[in-house]
């Protein structure tokens, strides 16, 4: 039995109906899609079985919701992508900084770029975008095209 399959079995046992889909496209890659409320639980479980390293968090704008993908690595070898969908109007996700402290900057980055609120994060002040960047404009959302960004940002500056 491959290591990937063992991990998949363990995850299935632990999370059960919280898993929406799970697949192993190739060696050392696992994609797992879970329900949003199972985030902390699954991260904790994954950390305990060895996924201590978090590579990054990717946000994807899929239209009505935002997909968060946590890329976790097991001893550097198996890369597991934990996916969950957050509704755009109520974009609240519990933070995992207390479970894996290394995630602190990635959560801030996603917060700025997609407007996802990480509840319980110690400091969500601007990290990448400049001071004076308008609130409620999240550049990586599909809605904000270049024209939109240019209009909303420069208009404000011109008015000043």
């Amino acid at each position: 039995m491959r290591r990937e399959d063992r991990i998949v079995t363990k995850l299935r046992e632990k999370l059960k109906e919280k898993i929406i889909t799970i697949n192993v496209p190739r060696e050392r890659r696992i994609f797992i899609h879970i329900k949003p409320d199972a985030l902390r639980e699954s991260i904790k479980f994954l950390r305990d079985i060895g996924f201590r390293h978090i590579s990054t968090i990717t946000g994807v704008d899929t239209g009505d919701s935002i997909e968060l993908i946590y890329h976790l690595a097991l001893d550097g070898s198996i890369e597991l992508s934990l996916k969950l969908k957050v509704q755009k109007d109520d974009h609240k996700v519990p933070t995992i900084t207390d479970i894996i402290p290394g995630v602190v900057l990635y959560e801030r980055e996603v917060h700025e770029m997609f407007g996802v609120n990480f509840e319980g994060h110690p400091d969500l002040s601007p990290l990448i975008l400049p001071e004076g960047w308008p609130r409620n404009i999240y550049p990586l959302r599909k809605k904000y095209t270049l024209e939109h960004l240019r209009n909303s940002i420069f208009k404000e500056e011109d008015e000043k």
């Binding site: 390293h53 590579s55 550097g76 070898s77 894996i100 402290p101 290394g102 995630v103």
Partner: peptide, 22 residues
């Protein structure tokens, strides 16, 4: 814990290298 990578991590004695692991 802080998810350091590369030579920074390896200089702390953690044997971790994508070339070897993945």
């Amino acid at each position: 814990e802080l998810c350091a990578v590369g030579p920074t991590l390896r200089a702390s004695g953690v044997k971790n290298d994508v070339r070897g692991d993945d």
